[in-house]
């Protein structure tokens, strides 16, 4: 319990950031028209690919002799990149169609 409390105290700034971000996330997309639901979902999907930074940090901090971390970290980098790159490219392809229309 005490450890959880200290976790809370040590991370109070992050917790503040989390709460603000939650409301920001809700606010930012609250006016989205139905047309954009699919591209928005796809774009959001690409943004959570930011998890790739965690896998890069693993690789940077891993001891070069720690093969467990290196192999899994390498796998994580590939998975994260797929999420980021695939996500943004797919979203861009969807949205290209909207652009074509408005010209």
């Amino acid at each position: 319990m005490e450890e959880l409390l200290s976790l809370f105290y040590e991370n109070r700034e992050f917790i503040f950031l989390i709460i603000t971000s939650v409301f920001l996330g809700i606010e930012v997309i609250s006016n989205v028209p139905a047309v954009l639901h699919t591209p928005l979902m796809s774009g959001a999907n690409a943004i959570h690919g930011v998890v790739i930074i965690g896998s890069i940090i693993i690789m940077l901090q891993a001891d070069p002799s720690n093969y467990y971390a290196l192999i899994l970290g390498f796998l994580a980098v590939i998975l994260g990149t797929l999420n980021v790159v695939g996500g943004f490219v797919v979203t861009n392809r969807m949205l290209e169609m909207f652009k074509k229309k408005s010209k």
Partner: peptide, 10 residues
């Protein structure tokens, strides 16, 4: 954090 939570809440 921001990226993850934004997507989580949105």
């Amino acid at each position: 954090l921001t990226g993850g939570i934004l997507v989580g809440s949105a």
